[in-house]
Design a protein around this nucleic acid. Structure first.
Lengths: 129, 129
DNA sequence: AGGTTGTGTCTACAAATGTAGAGATATAAG
DNA sequence: CTTATATCTCTACATTTGTAGACACAACCT
């Protein structure tokens, strides 16, 4: 996997939509994007084209003139290095600071927190093996 | 606090150094940056100047000709919105996915995990109040 | 078949970002 | 006091990113 592919914020927004939907046409992506900010179709299509050039998404299907795009890369391929970088940049590489902030920002109810506790327990079990 | 200040990656790198050191001169920042990538002094100084323009850092002190800069904004002022955005973009807004990835990426030993568990317990206690 | 419409293609450009050299100059060194 | 050096200042430019219009054209409707 290409390790040096950098995506801009906007490009990530589009990828995110594709990762969620599995596949989508440019007008569909445009619809989704417009929920957040008002940009023209051309703008979105340009981003899609650039992502295609970078081989981050591919033409999956065609119906009439309409092209359906699908991600060509797994979300994790990006989230892993980005998370590391983000952790380093914003939290001096300390996961605790990050989780603390996360708990502070997001309102998690008790059942959600318990899910997290389960994850931690599982990790501990794995460590002990 | 100015909510609409956007910092580039490089600008964040510099801020990070300042947040760590408390204050530093441009040559000192340059030194630190060079540990990661090879850029000229001018480049770093330009970034510092832009950060000063954006009022993200200030001249704290002067020794001879050398100016010492210090952050003019708390780390949290950036990490909060950035974390939210990052969560939304890379993990579809789901904190669990993010923590899962975090556990996967970073090798946390049991005592570190227990610290996290304590944080979660504290949060639950707060929820129940 | 002819017009309409929704998509795609191509091109362009402004703003932000990364990068750095040339020159000024205050301080340090002799 | 002169020279050398470390910093700062100013200016410039290439690249990336965000943004969108103009035009082409296939497909659908009647």
């Amino acid at each position: 996997m290409k390790a040096d592919v950098k995506l801009s914020e906007f490009e990530l927004d589009v990828m995110n939509i594709l990762w969620q939907l599995g596949k989508a046409s440019a007008p569909e992506v445009h619809e989704k994007i417009k929920l957040d900010k008002d940009v023209s179709y051309s703008t979105v299509k340009t981003i899609i084209d650039r992502l295609e050039q970078k081989a981050c998404l591919m033409r999956a299907e065609q119906q009439g003139r309409t092209i359906y795009y699908a991600p060509a890369i797994e979300r994790e391929a990006f989230s892993t290095p980005l998370l590391k970088g983000f952790l380093k940049r914003m939290f001096a590489g300390d996961p605790h600071k990050m989780v603390a902030q996360l708990l502070d920002n997001e309102q998690l109810d008790n059942s959600e927190i318990e899910q997290l506790e389960n994850m931690l327990a599982a990790q501990k079990a794995k460590n002990n093996k």
